[in-house]
Nucleic acid binder design. Sequence first.
RNA 1: GUGACAACCUGUUCUAUCGUAUCCCGGCAUGUCCGCGGGUAAGGAAAGUCAGGACAACACAGAGCGCCAUACUUCCUAACGGGAAGGUCCUGCGGCUGAACACCGCGGGAACAGCCAGUGCCACAGAAAAUAUACCGUCCCGGUUUACCGGGAUAAGGGUGAAAACGCGGGGUAAGAGCCCACGCCGUGAUGCAGCAAUGCAGCAUGAGGGUAAACCUUAUGGGUUGAAAGACCAAAUAUACCGGGAGUAGCGCCGCUUCGGCGGCUGCUGAAAGGGUUGCUCGCCCGAUGCCCGGGGGGUAGGUCGAUAGAGGCCAUCAGUGAUGGUGGUCCCAGAUAAAUGAUGGAAGCCGGAAGGUCGGCAACAGGCCCGAAGGAACAGAAUCCUGCUUACAGGGUUGUCACCUAA
Length: 135
Amino acid sequence: MISTEARKTFRKPEKICNQKQIDRLFSEGKSIRSGMFRMHYLLTDAPEIPAVQLLIAVPKKKLRHAVTRNRMKRLIRESYRLHKQNVIEFFSLMNKHCDLAIVFTGQQCISQLETHAAINELLDRLIKTHEKNPQ
RNA sequence: GUGACAACCUGUUCUAUCGUAUCCCGGCAUGUCCGCGGGUAAGGAAAGUCAGGACAACACAGAGCGCCAUACUUCCUAACGGGAAGGUCCUGCGGCUGAACACCGCGGGAACAGCCAGUGCCACAGAAAAUAUACCGUCCCGGUUUACCGGGAUAAGGGUGAAAACGCGGGGUAAGAGCCCACGCCGUGAUGCAGCAAUGCAGCAUGAGGGUAAACCUUAUGGGUUGAAAGACCAAAUAUACCGGGAGUAGCGCCGCUUCGGCGGCUGCUGAAAGGGUUGCUCGCCCGAUGCCCGGGGGGUAGGUCGAUAGAGGCCAUCAGUGAUGGUGGUCCCAGAUAAAUGAUGGAAGCCGGAAGGUCGGCAACAGGCCCGAAGGAACAGAAUCCUGCUUACAGGGUUGUCACCUAA
């Protein structure tokens, strides 16, 4: 960790693209609920290169129009991109890998500020629960 | 000038920081890499997935039946159920007129092939709904006697109905009726003229003159099925058909060859070794030739590549055409993701909006004009193989046309 903090990127390797990985995450993982969001997560021991991988889901049932769905996904991704550093460092130090899925459960598109707050809260809670009970 | 309607066009722009996808360039640590290098990155409907193609796989001698679609004409197009122009019928407004019909002008609509091919159907009401029919009425005859009853004729009139056997005048008759005739409407047919044609006009002949094909049906034309999750290719790990090589290969049995020493084979039996399992190690135990080790190899999974972005392409000019559209020349390269990129936050400009204020006019209330402009607002909507159309959604702005109202002349 020399001087400048890491660049805030969000590229392909940090996304979950594998069907089996997704199935396992939703069937075996745990979840945290907060307001308009639900977060599924699954810890594995094998430390891979991106310590945390993410999946964003906005269900069609909640937001009917493709335009609003796209916008919501982009807002969530933007929030994660700006707030992910702590989580990545935390799981790197624990030498674990974490799969995350953020699911939007609201009925309407919300603003970037609200999204920032909600995502930040979720990530903090994820870290806190594992500080207490490191398994 | 304002408003409404219709058609067509348009569908905010610039910039800073951070970020995404892809292509190019560069780097070395050669890859799911890095770069404060550069280019490009949603729409008029990207939507609905409705029609038609391109493309792909499979099917397919030929013919018939069936099923489905289409249905005025000509043209356009790769093709269409799309479009253009024209025709016919219906219809709105305006003009013409004393008023109307017809006609003319500007619009709107049409499931505009055929009930004169055949079969069927036509609720309720009504006497009767289609080879007609007789409730009232009209007329004739008979009986009776004023006004009633019976038989017959009749489709003019009444009544019913969405619809009642073409309209009107005359002849005719007991009364009537296309029963006959003139005129007219409608249908059909051939002829002449105009038109590529639909069709129009003209006179002639003819008559079975209600509606219904969104009833069966007839005629003509077209149609193989499934869709990019099509389809083509590469292919790790693991297991493995099959092939080659290697280690190991004792005894008995059987078969073949033999120079009688043996040699080879066996999906025959028994035993053991190599090897493997159990364990930290040794022993022990267990598996062990349909096996073990090495190499090749086909199919094929994860995953990846192609399909897949230069095209029935855009823009400009020009020519042909009433037009849809086509020809020619020039010029440009304009998204290509795949758990699915095209974003976030600031700032500025323009647009809509008009609070508050100023000013002109007026004695004033205050019509109205002009200036300045705060808050706030900005629709419908996100590519997914690609095109051509259609349909639907849509704030604001622009152009043209029609109508209404106001103002001025």
